[in-house]
Design a protein around this nucleic acid. Sequence first.
RNA 1: GCGGUCGUAGCUCAACUGGUUAGAGCACUCGCCUGUCACGCGAGAGGUUGCGGGUUCAAGUCCCGUCGACCGCGCCA
Length: 443
Amino acid sequence: MERTLIGELSGKVGQEVTIFGVADVRRDQGKMVFFDFRDRSGKVQGVVLPNSPAMDVAKETTIESSVRVSGIVNKRPEKNVVAGKQNGDIELEIQGIEIVGKAEVLPFEPDAELNLDTHLDNLPLTLRTERSRAIFKVQSEIIGAYREFLTKEGFREFQAPKLIGDDAEGSGEVFEVPYFYDKTAHLATSPQLYKQIMVGVFERVFCAGIVFRAEKHATTRHLNEYTSLDMEMGFIEDHHDLMNMETKLMRHITDHLRATCADEFAILGADIPKVPEEIPFMKLREAQELIKKETGADKTNEPDLEPEDERWLCEWAAKERGSDFIFVTHYPVAKRPMYTMEDENDKGFTKSFDLLFRGIEITTGGQRRHDYQNLIDGIKMKGLNPDQFSYYLQAFKYGMPPHGGWGMGLERLTAKFLNLANVKEAALFPRDINRIDTRLSEN
RNA sequence: GCGGUCGUAGCUCAACUGGUUAGAGCACUCGCCUGUCACGCGAGAGGUUGCGGGUUCAAGUCCCGUCGACCGCGCCA
């Protein structure tokens, strides 16, 4: 018999149907057995009545088993209607169950509160929980909204290489790949140089892909492999064009989530933030002065904000400006990569920005050096050898428009949208220095 | 890499200043249950307290080492 999706059952009252799904819950009452079944479209209750031919199979149908279930869609008696629940007014009177993928007894109850360690060691199972499904549906919708917005703004998506010749930017630790005969190769820490090259090709480009960082960090906000939402655009005036674009992007993403993921945010007890007409922004030095004035902590000689400063500044922005977001601009030249443009009106500081969201840095961006000689000066100033960048430099040798862009951490963004304590909860299969698919590498 | 906290049943957690046979809820097994929706009720089984050493009449508890996890920091997205 043809498959009916669970989400379509409410229109089939009185009909005989077959659903394909997973046994989500079993409530065995002896002479009667109730199930909740789930498929990709939702959940429905099934009931095996006394003396049903399906009773024997029902008794041995374990939670998480994949099944094909045939039965009749019935309206529930008035007193058994559960308001506000999908299919709460109907149920499937089960006539046959076929177990097509039997599950063994689970090591823990579905939807139990697990320690992060237990969750991560059992991902093939724990990713099936309602909570995990909610997190990764939201993440998937974020990527979809990102792609939709930038495409509409005239950006062209491209794939950046992950195997690269040099660590190029000189920022962050890189994984070495010992394969190529006569060259050192690495895993890309960013698509940075390639997306700049692609500005010369398409003017506006973006990519959403995995990047690799070999830092031996152990924090709630770092991964050794994460998804970078990158973009780069030509013919900008300065970094404010980028900040304005990102403001519009965040508004688009939050509107999209409101339309598609309200249930998932409710499951996780999280709020979708409002994006103000203008996200507040200030220079790094202004932020440091503010922190000094308000808290007494003098960090005005620091080249960057510490995590505790980022948290404080976000609380300030939320309270004083009603925004979950705040831009910090003008980091010192010494603190930023060689391609970052210095502000001609504020020497020693760059036309760069970070976007902070709910206490953490989710984006770094800025205007780039687009003049050939100016870029070579930038490379030399960092103590790097321009010859090593000749491939990249060719783009500039033959003319590049003023341009800039950003890189955004998808897992951080997801984690902060959903108030997750650790970014590893927002990565399907997170890699860190002690963990790569633990269960698979055991034995 | 450094600092802090922790490691007790399959899971989540108890066990006061060291003190008799290490407990609970859920899961599991058996029995009962014709309207449950985290079904319920009764009974049962389940532990080398991460591992190694030490102090003590006595160690889950104190000390040393080791392995592991989580949190914070550096670095970053």
